[in-house]
Design a protein around this nucleic acid. Sequence first.
DNA 1: ATGGTAGACCTTCTA
Length: 261
Amino acid sequence: MRIATWNVNSVNARLPTILEWFEQERPDVACLQELKCLDQRFPGEAFERLGYNVAVHGQKTYNGVALLSRTPLEDVRRGLPGDDGDEQARYIEAVISGPTPIRVGGLYLPNGNPVDTDKFAYKLAWMERLHAHAIQLLALEEPLVLAGDYNVIPESADVYDPAAWADDALFRPESRAAFRALKWLGLTDAYMAADGAPGGYTFWDYQAGAWPRDLGIRIDHLLLSPMAADRLAGVVIHRDVRGREKPSDHVPVVAELSLTV
DNA sequence: ATGGTAGACCTTCTA
């Protein structure tokens, strides 16, 4: 089965582009981020017509995440545990039903800029909550995928100019250390395990000609539990999508797992 | 050093 993650930067502004990609690629599961709409404004029928079951955790104007699956979604959780006062819609999780059920968490990790504000503290606190939740999920010893826009550049090879990003929240040592700590729990970065080639970027800014100049960063990741990593067959970054009409600034990343659907 | 783009929404915030 193929599992995709894609920060779409407004599901409604991007709908024709998104549907075209879904019709071409037909992923079994997809995690979408930055919907920028409330649940009732999510175009669920358009995805249902393509054969998907839909679970949404929306928010007005900002954030918003969704899970799409060809088989029914069970045990849906909306919101990251650990802070009941957190209003931001950045996490959704469900079990994908099938002969080998797989648990999928779709996440939109806070950007964290500027670093001298409470936005950076919120990012690091959110990563601590994700860490604590990942411990709980790994204890289940299931196939598990935590996929989304992590807003973390893991290594220097994942950015066109490391020095230019040294003070950015996406590349700060604190953010990278928290990402490494997640992996130390036993999670595998699917791209690195399957390919790992430098320059596998997933985001290019809209500004300053970042796309034509290939000034990209790798911030969209799929982290796999051991039972999922053992079944990893490959990862494809759909780079060409960035060059299409009215693109998102992120492109889809798709992991293939040798699981029957 | 600055400004460059995109989306939601209504004027500025987020990225």
